[in-house]
């Protein structure tokens, strides 16, 4: 890495804003933090006195807990604001919420929100750092980074790998961040799924669209299944989950076309038997729980890099 490199981002709103050098630096930092979570006393004083607010307008178990665990292991004070009982339910606008939170002087706000661009809107109206924990169908950068870390650990590299992402690309912020992140780091990204769930222009994010799952998975090093949401049947984007499982689900037969040592990933929560065969989810190629572990390390790194400066 260039000796002059400095991480200079105040906010983490999307992988589109980060350079390959930024991403590599975050992954290195995260890797160095993994050891903290292995200790008996899983806490370092690095962010003592810092205030982190988890502002989650959408339900979340994994991501919110992961951020909270990450912040606490760095000794930051954390506060959780959920949707029910929050002032938005009472009609407060996002910008007013931001101004009110700003008045309490937090150092970092972690936001999840159903609307694309909401994290940026918050960042424009608050002096604190903002981490996007998922905004609509836009990006989920910490998930993209933890997926990159997981692949790097398992494969020793990212550059030159073939990554297949299968499923609802249109509505998946995870897919968007992963397509951007993997292609920035030199991997080849292929996507496939029902054509109704492949958004126009996805190639410009760095993905190649394959008409069939088998083509996307052929010789892949990494196969990522995305969660398919039941309500897509009503839109109408899908005839049935059964048909989805039959033609787009990741099964042992599909995996036979991938490299022998290909790993299987899923951002969770899994619809077992729909997008991913249960035997694969629990099998030796699955790195799904590594993803969760790495999520804490990546989020510790992000909190450290945007707040631990001085």
């Amino acid at each position: 890495m260039n000796a002059d490199y400095r991480f200079s981002h105040k906010h983490i709103l999307g992988l589109a804003d980060l350079s390959a050098a930024d991403i590599a630096f975050i992954l290195r930092t995260a890797d160095s933090f993994k050891e903290i979570s292995q200790r008996n006393i899983k806490k370092v004083p690095t962010l003592r006195g810092r205030t982190v607010i988890n502002l989650f307008f959408e339900p979340s178990t994994r991501t919110r807990l992961s951020f909270e665990v990450a912040a606490k292991r760095m000794s930051a004070d954390t506060f959780n604001i959920g949707n029910s009982g929050s002032s938005t339910v009472k009609g407060e606008t996002m910008v007013d919420t931001a101004r009110n939170l700003a008045a309490m002087n937090p150092d970092c706000i972690i936001i999840r929100h159903a609307r694309s661009g909401s994290a940026r809107l918050l960042a424009e109206h608050i002096p604190a750092s903002v981490i996007n924990a998922g905004d609509g169908t836009h990006e989920h950068p910490s998930q993209g980074l933890l997926d990159l870390l997981t692949v790097q650990e398992n494969k020793g590299r990212i550059e030159g790998l073939r990554v297949a992402i299968i499923g609802d690309i249109s509505h998946s912020r995870v897919a968007h961040s992963n397509i951007i992140g993997f292609s920035k780091m030199g991997a080849e990204v292929r996507v496939s799924g029902p054509a109704t769930l492949i958004p126009p222009g996805i190639e410009q994010l760095g993905a190649t669209v394959c008409p069939t799952v088998r083509e996307a998975v052929a010789d892949a090093d990494v196969v990522m299944a995305l969660r398919i949401q039941h309500e897509r049947q009503q839109d109408p984007l899908l005839p049935s989950l059964r048909e989805y499982a039959t033609f787009f689900g990741i099964t042992p037969a599909v995996m036979a076309g991938a490299k022998a040592d290909a790993i299987i990933m899923h951002p969770g929560p899994i619809n077992r038997g729909v997008e991913l065969d249960p035997a694969l989810a629990d099998g030796p190629r699955s790195v799904i729980l590594d993803q969760v572990t790495n999520g804490v390390a990546v989020r510790m790194a992000l909190l450290y890099l945007i707040m631990g400066g001085e």
């Binding site: 694309s116 661009g117 249109s170 912020r173 126009p200 190639e203």
Partner: peptide
């Protein structure tokens, strides 16, 4: 509709 909307998640 297009690549830009896709990138912005709109």
């Amino acid at each position: 509709e297009g690549a830009l909307a896709t990138r912005l998640g709109l």
